[in-house]
């Protein structure tokens, strides 16, 4: 349980890719995503995957992305088996399954390298309403907090003799009630506190709040943008029409 809580906590890593403007990271991620969608043969799959792993290794997230992909493998296998059952040739089924992995990998690159506060800036840049952006930020911010609360509640109830592992599925579900109720109450109390604190710090004073940080693409951002586009466009053309 504690291990899961850890998984939700964003880790700040410094790498050349992390330092790029979040919009550039989003662009690269979208490019890789598009490439993965267009994949149709084994060499193409290899190109797309190596692109993803290259970026992952620059960003020092190889281990984390591999872990995500290991979980995804389960679904990939299901996709593979269904395709075989439906009657696709072995190679085609394989490519389709691996393409799924590539799609997941390309999206995780953005989420694993972009801290939530940068994500918030990107959302603002897309002119999403302030309330929605803030709701998102708060949700992400409080996931680990509520996870820790859940652990404490479980400790308290286990100390009062609650045994979660006992019984059949139905009675097990019932055993979670003493954990769920305090957790919900706790979340409600926290949100009340948050609402007060927001008001006390002038939330909603002006229509368009400003920001401490401003998005700036910078020299490396421009280089990365140009480089990635010049690489992707011919590749996509190749995938679509030639290979």
């Amino acid at each position: 349980m504690q291990w899961i809580a850890q998984g939700f906590i964003f880790r700040r890593i410094t790498s050349p890719f992390h330092q790029l403007d979040p919009r550039v990271k989003l662009l690269v991620s979208i490019e890789l995503f598009t490439l993965s969608l267009l994949v149709g043969s084994l060499p193409e799959v290899i190109i797309a995957l190596s692109g993803i792993f290259a970026i992952a290794s620059i960003s020092k997230i190889l281990r984390r992305i591999s872990r995500t992909l290991t979980y995804t493998l389960f679904f990939a296998i299901i996709i593979f088996s269904i395709n075989i059952l439906v009657g696709y040739p072995l190679m085609d089924a394989f490519v389709i399954a691996v393409r799924f992995l590539a799609i997941v990998g390309s999206t995780s690159i953005f989420f694993l390298t972009t801290p939530p506060d940068e994500l918030e800036l990107v959302m603002k840049w897309f002119r999403l309403p302030r309330d929605i952006v803030f709701a998102f930020v708060t949700a992400v911010r409080f996931v680990p907090v509520l996870m820790m609360d859940a652990l404490q509640i479980m400790d308290a109830q286990k100390s009062r003799g609650l045994e979660l592992q006992k019984g059949n599925i139905f009675s097990r579900f019932r055993r979670f009630i003493p954990i769920l109720i305090p957790l919900i109450v706790d979340a409600v109390l926290r949100s009340g506190d948050l609402a007060e604190a927001m008001e006390a710090r002038a939330y909603g004073a002006v229509k368009k709040p400003t920001s401490l940080y401003q998005l700036e693409i910078g020299v490396w951002g421009k280089v990365a943008t140009i480089l990635s586009i010049t690489l992707i466009v011919p590749l996509a053309y190749l995938f679509l029409f030639l290979m």
Partner: peptide, 30 residues
Amino acid sequence: VANLSRKIGIIFQNPDHQIFSESVENEVKF
């Protein structure tokens, strides 16, 4: 934990982390 707790009762810091029953009576009975 249940067997050990029968002998060793821990009272945690935050009451809101354990209260869940619809009445005080049931909370004690839990």
